[in-house]
Write a protein that binds this DNA or RNA. Structure first.
Lengths: 198, 198
DNA sequence: CAAACTGTGGTACGACTGTATCCCGACAGT
DNA sequence: ACTGTCGGGATACAGTCGTACCACAGTTTG
């Protein structure tokens, strides 16, 4: 048991344990003792690295945001650069959908945080997550598509992107709720894009 | 304090108190004592009419479903009968969005239940809510619109309706999260319908 | 080598929770 | 008028929660 520990690394492990619990048993099943048990450490250690429970809980949001962001970037990078707008949209929106177990778990935890944040003004801290960046990026992509004539000139890129993101978000919900498969959700996204890029 | 009480009525009051707490302070703030206090009765009364906490919690789902269903029907009825498909879709989807404080509170509670149901197989009971009926109804509406030529023949009514409902669902989320106003959400829905019924 | 600090185990405390139990007033049927 | 059931007040109990505190070994610093 070496002294001089990497605090950040330790915190990451504990946060990972927290998210594991949140995605499997829900956010209300997260207690300091449960996180300790899940991470295989004593309660004191959790207290030591996250003084509060609020601090512990708050650590989950940036971690989830980082994971989702990384997933989108990796997917985009895997398809090379300079892709056509239609492909960019399909890849990005597809990256949001819970395709594998990991992304599904993250989306479950994300949903739990989202729901908890709806009620609790002082609790949600400043965990303002900003999907604005993504929204602006895709809007730019679509604007270029309008300029090149790939999509009709009378589409409003701004509203169209808002709609696409809301659509994807709604599909995520239904996939998480197991009312629809990921493939079905992807088919809906592709259908919408097909009609946009007719 | 009269004897011989209407049990159903009493249960409805308690469920209403439960939903009031759930929509303002979240589902995890719901305890038997809190519901009792909110309803202005003693803990024993809550125990008496709902033996379990599970039973108490489970009472919220059908109540919410009934309210949402009633809202959609009322809105539809308020616009008279025999409306054009485009109007039906706009009214129905608009009724899902949280326009006033009541519907917003209900949607908050609904979201809390949805999130709680994602994690907890044995807890969610058989509270399988069926939006299939709504989906089928709107699909029929859109099919008729295809037949009359109001929408292009190459649209797939089934997928289109799934997309519209997912879109609306996603917009509800963003409105609840106060990232968007109801008017903005309605504008997105109208934009989508405008492009569908071009 | 001594002193101070870091990381961690163990445990205790008060506030809650769901549930169970005991009790009694008010009405019903006889 | 008596008795049993219904509706509900009060309280108790065992468990879990977040938090606080104490002790101590190992490491760093002087």
């Amino acid at each position: 048991m070496p002294r001089r520990v990497d605090h950040d690394e330790r915190r990451r492990e504990l946060t990972a344990a927290l998210l594991r619990i949140a995605s499997t048993r829900g956010l209300q099943a997260v207690s300091m003792r449960e996180v300790a048990a899940e991470a295989g450490v004593s309660l004191r250690v959790v207290q030591y690295y996250f003084t509060d429970k609020r601090t512990l809980m708050a650590s989950g949001i940036p971690e989830l945001a980082a994971r989702l962001d990384r997933r989108v970037r990796e997917r985009a990078a895997a398809h090379g650069t300079g892709l056509p707008p239609r492909t960019v949209l399909e890849v990005v929106l597809g990256a949001i959908l819970p395709t594998d177990d990991d992304s599904r778990a993250d989306q479950l935890a994300w949903t739990a945080y989202y729901a908890a944040g709806l009620t609790a003004p002082a609790d949600a801290v400043d965990g303002r997550y900003a999907p604005d960046a993504l929204e602006r990026w895709l809007t730019g992509v679509l604007e270029r598509a309008v300029d090149t004539g790939e999509v009709p000139a009378d589409v409003d890129p701004r509203i169209e992107v808002v709609g696409l993101l809301a659509l994807t978000n709604g599909l995520v919900s239904s996939v998480l709720g197991q009312q629809r498969t990921v493939d079905d959700a992807l088919a809906v996204v592709r259908y919408r894009l097909d009609r946009l890029f007719r």
